[in-house]
């Protein structure tokens, strides 16, 4: 299983990939998670890969190979579209964050991304930002999206909850579980 998580540096994609990796271990798989640190984290496009199965060699996912793309921002979803396997599924947050070329006016933010994606691939678009606000903080977007991902995967819900409890700091467990439920029950 190849899952690609894409977003903008600072959105918490790393935590999402760690939760997912933790779930895959609990299910008894061989797992590899490839992360992004350093300069590329600073508000740029960030991509993490989570791969699991009987045996995983390469930690990276190439174009046409992702079973699921979990996108934290809609332009990043569009950028990641070529990575989706034929017949794969994309779960995308509809939030729009302007990249610097758009801010400086050098380029325009592409129009109708959701529509373009839906025409070509199996897309589930969600306003995860509003759900995170409902949970209590916009920072919980990542766990809302993990909830959505959990719903479309064949893993018992309790395993996800247990992994979230182990992964996030103790004082944020309740908030994150609320965010997870909001995503899961959508």
């Amino acid at each position: 299983m190849n899952i690609m998580i894409v977003g903008v540096g600072g959105q918490g994609t790393l935590l999402a990939s760690r939760i997912l990796g933790g779930v895959a271990i609990k299910e008894g798989y061989d797992v590899k998670v490839s992360e992004v640190h350093g300069m590329s984290q600073r508000g740029g496009s960030v991509v993490t890969y989570v791969k699991y199965g009987d045996k995983v060699y390469s930690p990276i996912i190439d174009r046409g190979e992702a079973d699921i793309v979990l996108a934290f921002e809609i332009l990043e979803a569009y950028r990641a579209m070529p990575y989706l396997k034929k017949g794969g599924k994309m779960i995308a947050n509809t939030q729009q964050m302007n990249p610097m070329p758009v801010i400086t006016g050098a380029m325009e933010y592409p129009a109708d991304i959701e529509k373009k994606l839906a025409e070509k691939i199996n897309l589930q678009a969600v306003d995860a930002l509003s759900l995170a606000e409902q949970a209590g903080t916009i920072k919980a977007v990542n766990v809302v999206l993990i909830g959505l991902l959990a719903k479309s995967m064949d893993v018992d819900k309790s395993v996800w909850i247990e992994t979230i409890k182990e992964t996030v700091p103790e004082k944020f467990i309740d908030l994150n579980l609320k965010a997870f439920e909001l995503g899961y029950n959508l």
């Binding site: 740029g44 496009s45 990043e76 950028r79 070529p82 396997k85 034929k86 592409p110 070509k120």
Partner: peptide
């Protein structure tokens, strides 16, 4: 050959790292 994939088909803005 590589696995088949959907091409974006238009130029989209890059998202370079920025100061926070």
């Amino acid at each position: 050959d590589a696995a088949p994939f959907e091409e974006i088909g238009e130029q989209i803005p890059v998202r370079p790292p920025v100061m926070c």
